[in-house]
Simulated assay, not measured.
Amino acid sequence: MLIVLPSEELLVRFTGLVAALLSMWGYIEVTEQKTKTLFAISSVVWGVQYVLLGSATGAAIMVLAAVRQGVSVYAMHMSLRQKQLFAGVFTITAFVLTGLTAHIWYQSMVPLAATLIGTWSFFFCSNENIRRWTLLSNGMWAVHAVIFRSWELLACMIVLNVANLYGLYKISAARRLDPLSPSTH
């Protein structure tokens, strides 16, 4: 039996697939700059999917994530004061967005915490430590998926954490081959 999806639904699913593939590619990528760039691009694509789904909140949060990830590409070249400023602005913005969109406060705390972990790790951690904190952040998103019975999000977080673990393995292997190599930075 062939299932035919309406063209709008097909576009939504295709956009989600592209976003997921870009996210996974980001986790598999070794260099910090390429990883963050791919994360920013995937967040834009996730934002497009949220627009197609009619979710202004989801789109706004993804745009915030894309901007944060794009700005954090240059974090290694920023002064501590600049990093603090950007992380603070993104933190305040995340609280404001959560405050404006939360209906039941405790259900919003898990994604808020996951977003805050992402913000602070992207500005203050190394490539490898960003990935470690992302394991926790993705775990929190998985908990959120269970709360709301979003099995698709749960599956995505599992796949992304596996890809992330593979990226961590590649970084470790590259360091063993050449401990002074800049390829992992």
Rank of each mutant, 00 (worst) to 15 (best):
122 F>R: 03
102 A>F: 08
173 A>W: 07
33 Q>F: 08
94 A>H: 02
31 T>S: 15
52 L>P: 08
77 H>P: 00
141 W>D: 03
57 T>L: 01
70 G>R: 06
70 G>V: 09
89 V>H: 02
58 G>L: 05
2 L>N: 13
64 L>Q: 14
185 H>R: 11
141 W>R: 03
166 Y>A: 12
127 N>S: 12
7 S>P: 15
119 T>H: 01
110 V>E: 02
72 S>A: 15
51 V>M: 10
18 V>Y: 10
21 L>S: 12
23 S>K: 05
96 V>I: 15
151 W>E: 07
169 Y>F: 14
153 L>C: 01
177 L>D: 11
3 I>V: 15
58 G>I: 07
61 I>K: 05
45 V>Q: 04
105 W>G: 01
123 F>W: 06
73 V>L: 06
173 A>K: 15
55 S>G: 02
50 Y>E: 10
58 G>S: 04
121 S>E: 09
176 R>E: 13
58 G>C: 06
28 I>M: 06
131 R>H: 09
41 I>D: 00
125 C>D: 08
46 W>G: 01
77 H>Y: 13
116 L>P: 02
173 A>D: 14
96 V>W: 07
80 L>S: 11
184 T>F: 03
49 Q>L: 02
47 G>R: 08
143 V>L: 13
86 F>M: 11
104 I>T: 15
176 R>G: 01
124 F>M: 11
14 F>H: 01
178 D>V: 02
45 V>H: 03
86 F>E: 05
171 I>E: 04
99 G>E: 10
8 E>M: 11
183 S>D: 13
117 I>F: 10
83 K>H: 03
69 Q>T: 07
45 V>A: 04
71 V>I: 15
26 G>I: 08
93 T>I: 07
133 W>E: 05
76 M>R: 14
144 H>I: 00
175 R>V: 12
153 L>D: 06
47 G>C: 09
27 Y>W: 15
86 F>Q: 05
94 A>L: 04
29 E>T: 13
168 L>A: 05
88 G>I: 09
39 F>S: 03
65 A>M: 14
35 T>D: 00
43 S>D: 13
3 I>K: 14
131 R>T: 07
54 G>I: 04
127 N>V: 05
107 Q>T: 15
180 L>R: 12
13 R>M: 08
100 L>T: 03
173 A>F: 05
74 Y>L: 10
114 A>K: 08
61 I>C: 05
152 E>R: 10
48 V>D: 01
152 E>A: 14
24 M>H: 02
129 N>H: 13
68 R>E: 05
90 F>Y: 11
136 L>D: 04
39 F>G: 01
46 W>L: 11
116 L>E: 03
53 L>E: 13
1 M>G: 13
167 G>Q: 04
79 S>F: 07
40 A>D: 07
8 E>S: 13
14 F>I: 11
37 T>Y: 09
38 L>N: 07
30 V>S: 03
27 Y>Q: 08
149 R>G: 01
94 A>N: 03
169 Y>M: 09
